[in-house]
C-alpha cells in the first residue's frame, strides 16, 4: 500500500515555488486509483517526488510503500522496493541499447532483492513475449532507448518496462496522451494483465476514455498541489462532462 501524508514539496532552486501543498493519498494494495486535475496542479511533480528525482525538496509530510519510508531512498532503491513510474515524457538515451538497459534494470533489481541474475536466454524470451503483446517489434528493441520512437511507441515502451520489471506500485503519468485508439487499447490491456491482488496502480490522466479500459477503484482530483476530491469512477465522468470548475469552487469554499 502506498501512503502519502501531508506531502509538501518545493523547488530546490526556487524555494518560493511550492508545488505540493499537503497531498494526502492512500492506494491500498490491489487497487487502481486515478488522478485527474488541471494542468500544472502538481500531478507529475508528485510522481517525481515519489520516485526520487533531484530538484525537489520535501519540506513536510511522508510517503511510504508497505511501511517503508521511500522518501529516504535513492531512486534505484525505490525501484527495487517495487515503485515504478511510467514517465509523462519518456527519456531518449542515445548510445544505450534498449535491451542492455532493460537487462541492467532487471538484474539490478534482482540483485537488490538477493535474487540470482536472469539467464540471457530467459531474459530474451521474457522481453520478446511482452514486447509482442504491446506490438513492439524486435527491431525497435534493438534501438537505443526511446531513440527514433514515435510518441506512442515511447509510451508502449514504458509499459513494456513495467511488464518486465513487475513492480508492485505502478504510477502511470499520462501514459494515454499521444496514443491512438488502438495503442490505447494495447496499453490498457498491458495494464490490466498486470492487475493483481498484490499490485497497485496510480493512473494520472486527463481523459475519461482510458478509465473505460482500466476501471479505477477510486478517482482523485488534484488541484493546487493537493487532493481536493475523491470518489468513485463517476467522478471521472463528471469531470469529462463538466470540467473542473464546480469541484474547484467547492474545494475553495
Amino acid at each position: 500500500m502506498l501512503t502519502i501524508k501531508n506531502l509538501h514539496a518545493r523547488l530546490e532552486e526556487e524555494p518560493d515555488t511550492v508545488i505540493l501543498k499537503g497531498v494526502d493519498l492512500e492506494v491500498p494494495t490491489g487497487q487502481v486509483h486515478a488522478i485527474m486535475g488541471p494542468n500544472g496542479s502538481g500531478k507529475s511533480t508528485m510522481s517525481y517526488v515519489l520516485s526520487g528525482r533531484d530538484g525537489y525538496e520535501v519540506t513536510d509530510g511522508a510517503a511510504d510503500l508497505d511501511g517503508d519510508d521511500i522518501l529516504e531512498m535513492e531512486p534505484d532503491e525505490r525501484a527495487a522496493a517495487g515503485l515504478f513510474l511510467a514517465f509523462q515524457y519518456p527519456v531518449e538515451i542515445p548510445g544505450v541499447g534498449n535491451m542492455t538497459f532493460l537487462r541492467e534494470a532487471v538484474n539490478a533489481q534482482r540483485k537488490a532483492r538477493d535474487q540470482e541474475e536472469m539467464s540471457a536466454a530467459g531474459f530474451l524470451k521474457l522481453v520478446r513475449a511482452e514486447a509482442a503483446k504491446l506490438e513492439i517489434s524486435p527491431e525497435m528493441l534493438k534501438r537505443f532507448v526511446n531513440v527514433g520512437f514515435s510518441g506512442g511507441e515511447k509510451k508502449r515502451n514504458e509499459i513494456l518496462q513495467m511488464a518486465v520489471l513487475q513492480p508492485k506500485m505502478c504510477i502511470l503519468d499520462e501514459t494515454d496522451s499521444g496514443l491512438d485508439v488502438d495503442a490505447m487499447k494495447l496499453v490498457a490491456e498491458g495494464v490490466n494483465a498486470l492487475r493483481s491482488p498484490d499490485r497497485s496502480f496510480l493512473v494520472i490522466t486527463h481523459y475519461q476514455r482510458l478509465l473505460d479500459y482500466i476501471k479505477p477503484d477510486v478517482v482523485h482530483i488534484m488541484a493546487g498541489g493537493r487532493i481536493v476530491e475523491s470518489g468513485g469512477p463517476d467522478l471521472a465522468l463528471k469531470v469529462e462532462n463538466e470540467g473542473y470548475s464546480d469541484i474547484l469552487k467547492k474545494s475553495a469554499a
Binding site: R53, D54, V91, V96
Partner: peptide
C-alpha cells in the same frame, strides 16, 4: 541528469547508470 534519473528510476544503480552513459559517450 534526466537520463541518469530515468535509468535509476528503473533500478539501475548510480554506478551502473554512469557506466552505461559513459560507455555510450565513448562509443562515438
Amino acid at each position: 541528469e534526466t537520463a541518469m534519473f530515468y535509468l535509476r528510476s528503473r533500478g539501475v544503480s548510480q554506478d551502473v547508470a554512469e557506466r552505461l552513459l559513459v560507455e555510450a559517450f565513448i562509443e562515438e
